[in-house]
């Protein structure tokens, strides 16, 4: 636990071990629950049969997390919107060939995370409004907000991570994937994913400590 009371779920045991990074998180997202999966399968089948309402339900189920994941990785709300839209348009395009027995979420997440990484790489160092203390009105809560400043500091700390580490943090802690699942999605060795996670958490932890000391 860091000085601000943020639990980072650092790896335990030896420095080289995966520790709890490989373990499933205790609070699994509803999309990964069996009931939700069954419901999703029905919706996918209905959408394939032409039910716009079913596809709308799928959109409702997945949009918030897909959009958030992209935003956390690239930190540009307009671009995140575009990338998330692309993912859903791709899902719609491939709907007829989609295997309804498989969950839709991972498929969307893989597209969004990879495209978010690509977008950030091609944009190089962006002179974002954040750098000029330009806070989105509906974005990170300001000090006057009921929400504490931890989220704002976290957003800043995430921004200091290389995009590759940011992406694995988002996949692990927002989207609830195990390192091996992340490795498959990003086409990386599992060891690389674990390494990136460890380095990311170390960096986030030290950033928080500096923020707390400041």
């Amino acid at each position: 636990m860091d000085k601000l009371g943020l639990r980072l779920r650092r790896p335990t045991g030896s420095a080289g071990g995966a520790g709890d990074l490989a373990a499933p998180l205790p609070a699994l997202g509803p999309l990964r629950a069996d009931a939700a999966h069954r419901s999703e399968r029905k919706l996918v089948r209905a959408a394939k049969r032409g039910s716009k309402e079913a596809f709308g339900e799928l959109f409702n189920m997945h949009w918030p997390r897909v959009h958030r994941a992209s935003y956390l990785i690239i930190r540009d709300s307009a671009a995140a919107e575009d990338i998330a839209q692309e993912a859903f348009m791709a899902a719609l395009r491939h709907l007829d060939r989609f295997d309804a027995r498989r969950p839709l979420g991972p498929w969307l997440h893989r597209i969004v995370v990879n495209r978010s990484i690509d977008w950030t790489r091609t944009s190089r160092i962006r002179s974002e409004v954040h750098a000029d203390s330009w806070r989105e009105e509906t974005g990170v809560p300001g000090p006057e907000s009921a929400a504490p400043a931890v989220s704002g500091e976290l957003m800043s700390a995430l921004g200091r991570l290389p995009v590759e580490r940011r992406a694995v943090v988002v996949m692990r802690f927002l989207l609830d994937y195990t390192p091996s699942e992340i490795a498959a999605a990003l086409e990386l060795p599992t060891g690389t994913v674990n390494s990136r996670l460890r380095r990311a958490l170390d960096q986030l932890g030290s950033d928080y400590e500096e923020a707390a000391d400041a």
Binding site: L6, R9, E137, S151, L174
Partner: peptide, 24 residues
Amino acid sequence: MPDLRSELERIRVPEAEESERQAR
């Protein structure tokens, strides 16, 4: 006590509702 996962969920995405509406 907040953890990283809950903090990632709490970060507000700018104009999230409008983005969702447009995307829909």
